[in-house]
């Protein structure tokens, strides 16, 4: 199949890449624009980065968003990994269809529905048991974990399906207890998937606007909520600077994650080769 790409396909791929990246590149270029009006070029400058670093509201938002993202990613990875194991390795169990449905639905559910429904849940819970007493960090984190764990579960399921059970079966044949097999073989082999899942959950949380806006309370301004309130009325040069930092940060994280996955993939192939030979 290789290198049999017609001119039309080459054109579409090239045009697609231009379409994907030109808006982002322009956004980055204009962050170095001196002019207060974003699209009017006033010469190169880093003044908007200075403006950015002096904003206290921004740092509060960054701190809140990072704390939520880290707690969310950790819990989502644990829950998502358990869910993935349950779906792929446990065969049939009672409620599997419902469980599978609840794992897939958050991926496509419109955010306005998830956001509204979680807000109404929190309000009902507060009336019933007095918790959560105020909305903010806790409620946003719970909401994020709920949709992030579904994404983690997808990654874990794909990885579990891809890595087969040869090594686990070999260990069981040699007399290892199932729990030891899980700790010594399955989890280490799942680690790159879990790392990728953690990173994805982390970025999803940093990125979420709609659900956070529903379940937040007074003072609970996450970074996207802050950005949104700034850009609602038009283009803001300091937001271009902020966007540049965020985009480069995420790109670096993803590149590292891709590298880890690639290396691990090679190692897994070697392990399996050895397992099959012996």
């Amino acid at each position: 199949m290789y290198n049999k790409r017609s001119k039309f396909l080459t054109f579409m791929v090239t045009a697609g890449m231009v379409f994907f990246y030109v808006p982002i590149i322009l956004l980055i270029i204009y962050s170095f624009n001196y002019s207060k009006l974003v699209p009017v070029w006033g010469g190169w400058s880093t003044r908007w980065y200075d403006v950015l670093f002096q904003s206290e509201a921004l740092w509060n938002a960054v701190s809140l968003s990072l704390r939520i993202a880290i707690v969310n990613a950790t819990f989502a990875t644990i829950l998502g990994t358990l869910a993935g194991l349950a779906m792929v390795r446990f065969g049939r169990f009672r409620g599997r269809t419902l469980f599978g449905g609840m794992l897939v639905a958050p991926l496509v559910m419109p955010e306005v529905i998830t956001g509204l429904s979680l807000l109404l849940l929190f309000i009902t819970l507060k009336q019933l048991i007095g918790w959560p007493s105020e909305r903010g960090f806790t409620t946003i984190t719970i909401a994020h974990i709920t949709f992030s764990l579904a994404y983690v579960a997808v990654i874990i399921q794909a990885r579990l399906a891809g890595m087969g059970q040869t090594l686990e079966e070999a260990a069981l044949d040699l007399g290892a207890k199932p729990f030891r097999v899980l700790i010594d073989i399955t989890l280490p082999r799942l680690a790159p998937g879990m790392a990728a899942g953690w990173l994805l959950a982390f970025t999803l949380s940093l990125d979420d606007l709609v659900i956070s806006r529903f379940v937040t309370g007074p003072g609970g301004n996450t970074l996207p909520i802050l950005i949104y309130s700034r850009i609602k009325t038009g283009l803001k040069p300091d937001i271009n600077a902020l966007a540049t930092i965020m985009i480069l940060f995420v790109a670096a994280c993803v590149a590292i994650a891709a590298l880890i996955m690639f290396r691990q993939h090679k190692k897994t192939m070697q392990d399996e080769l050895i397992a099959n030979q012996s």
Partner: peptide, 26 residues
């Protein structure tokens, strides 16, 4: 290259188009 935009902020990708499409835009 296709996956990367998926990881970068949705909100900021929408914002990028505000800069392209505005009356005084690129």
């Amino acid at each position: 290259a296709v996956i990367l935009p998926f990881w970068t902020s949705f909100l900021l990708r929408v914002y990028a188009w505000m800069g392209l499409l505005a009356d005084q835009g690129t």
